[in-house]
Design a protein around this nucleic acid. Structure first.
Lengths: 193, 193
DNA sequence: TTTTTTGTTGATTGACGAGTCAATAAACTT
DNA sequence: AAGTTTATTGACTCGTCAATCAACAAAAAA
């Protein structure tokens, strides 16, 4: 009973299944069949909607980035004061939705892919640029000319905390990561004052 | 003209070729044939010395870690004062030998592998433990009880700076990375004083 | 009601690549 | 000299998978 308008539903299911499967296996060596199975369809259908496995993964990462971006914007909208804005970005970066084991695993694999696939590199550059820009703007009133370098350090620290998360055994702990980042931020700001 | 005692020479060549090829391709999807070819031998011989491709890559990472460890020890031996020791670790971490494009690429792939291969995870844990221990000891006289948390932040920052290196287009720039890490360190220390 | 569009899959193709094997050869041992 | 160990490779096996195809079903359009 083929209902119409399935495309967005199927694509969405595939995107989510892609993240879950990559997180489960821990690498991009997941077969399209595995992903399709988890999304409740045949591998042929997956290929029908996304041309290739690579397209599927890129769509999945765009999805992750979109959610992250939305969360950051939402948090910025209600943040009060410059420091509140920086904290909002940090909190969004390590929120339960973004700082999940499988999502972090997907990021890690995405990073690897960016080394050989231009489109992945481009996407990652866009993401990094946005993060950098958000941080710099929020820091400007607090640190003036030093905003740029502090943002660079904070950005690298966030990536590093993501990286470390994949090695831990227990469940993801975003609050601990936020704490480390906040300490770093306060130390930097204290120096400027 | 098969000379005897080839094993260590061949293994060494394979280990180095593994790093170069992974760096060139940007992923673990390098064929044993490619690696063997670069090392100047047949793929069969590579399989003869290392049982599997995975063993080959693990040996390569052990090699990278050994070099890094030796460099850190050497730098610590001639460092003066507690802060000099921390700086020595940072400098070694971003030295031209360790902070090379292909080596950083290998690290990134190693991280991915650690998600699914226990031996890789174990090795990575050993490395992280050593780095953490080195940093904590060096920081103890400078930061007392806060040495632990500062070490954790610095460790994550170092990883993050490695991560960011793979995206850059130009040649590796260790001095810029060291500068960021040093600023972070100074900010943290200034707060403790 | 024919035709077209959309959804769906089982089966197949085609390529690729890890790992094995048999065979060859030079050195070392006895 | 006969036997053993080490070095070395071309050819081959065997499994895996991304991607395609042919075919079928149902809704929508004509």
């Amino acid at each position: 009973m083929p209902k119409l308008g399935m495309e967005p539903i199927r694509k969405d299911a595939l995107v989510k299944a892609t993240i879950v499967e990559i997180g489960r296996v821990g690498s991009l060596d997941v077969t399209v069949s595995q992903i399709a199975k988890r999304a409740g369809m045949s591998s042929a259908l997956a290929h029908h909607y996304f041309g290739s496995k690579e397209d599927m993964f890129l769509a999945a990462m765009r999805h992750v980035m979109t959610l992250y971006g939305a969360e950051v914007r939402g948090a910025l909208a209600v943040a009060e004061g410059p420091e509140g804005r920086v904290r909002a970005i940090l909190r969004a970066s390590f929120s339960p939705g973004n700082f999940r084991r499988d999502v972090v695993g997907a990021w890690l694999n995405f990073w690897v892919l960016a080394q050989s696939v231009p489109e992945a590199k481009r996407l990652l550059a866009v993401y990094q640029g946005r993060l950098r820009s958000n941080l710099t703007h929020a820091l400007r009133p607090l640190a003036g000319a030093r905003a740029g370098e502090i943002a660079a350090g904070l950005g690298a620290l966030i990536d590093g905390l993501y990286l470390r998360e994949v090695l831990k055994s227990g469940p993801a702990d975003g609050s601990a990561a936020v704490a480390v980042a906040k300490r770093h931020l306060e130390a930097e700001l204290a120096r400027g004052a």
